[in-house]
Amino acid sequence: MEGKTVIKVENLVKRYKELVALDHFNLEVKEGEVFGLLGPNGSGKSTTMNCILGLLKYDKGNIEVFGKKMAPDSYEVKAMIGVVPQEVAVFEELTVLENVDYFCGLYVNDKATRKQYVEEALEFVGLQEFKKFYPKKLSGGLLRRLNIACGIAHKPKLIFLDEPTVAVDPQSRNKILEGIEQLNAEGATIVYTSHYMEEVEQICTRIAIMDGGKNLAIGTNEELKNMIKTGETIQVEILDFPQAQLESIRALPHVYRAEYEENHLKVHYTKGQRNLVRLLDYLKEHDITFGRVYSELPTLNDVFLEITGKELRD
């Protein structure tokens, strides 16, 4: 991938007493990317972010952001970073406008510029009508949007979003995801952590799959799916399937696994052409009556499953 390196993490090790949260973790994020950190809860996503942001001390390794070694007092670098934490982090005693103004003011001193930025941020997240509302009066979705506005109002070049759509209604979720794409289109590099693979697939240009504090695989959506054996999974509804036929189906080209459970024949293919046609021809030839047919392309969950042997949401 071309472009300047914005984040470079080398051999990062972070221990919480006996627990190794990050185990020689490596990462490189390029300018203009929407980089996804995908992994189940406890995989080390938030720890990675906190180490990069200088909020956590790490035991070993090296972190560079915008070409400079990151430390708690790297204020010059921090000025270019925006953070949207996983939990809503705003002052309950301040209104929506006051909250955005305060967090923007930690970066932007000029009053007029700040006023403009705050207005733009509120417009961006669609909270103009709620300026004078206190956070207690906002719904979960609106609170999440306020949380985002507080993190992006100062127009950072690099934005960390830590599970920004947790417990959010579908409408707000779509609004948030559209917003992230828009921020990226405006030039911001995004680091997006989530355990929702659909979101990561939808908006991320590159993805790192994490588990147990390790970086298991990095690549684009397609690259990751190409890393695994699974090309396609075909499911056929069959009420009465002779078990003896199962071995014959397993012998078909590109089939690497087949099983029959609960009136469904499930056939897993490696990459290959005409798999569906060939399977249906076989069933007709053997007078096997079938109902609905489904064809599924591999997902990131399949990638995760194949790499780790467990489901992403386990």
Partner: peptide
């Protein structure tokens, strides 16, 4: 207590104001 609430304190710690 408001100023030192952990979530907002960590957020402020991410900022460029020491």
């Amino acid at each position: 207590i408001s100023l030192n609430r952990e979530k907002v304190r960590l957020r402020a710690n991410c900022s460029s104001l020491s």
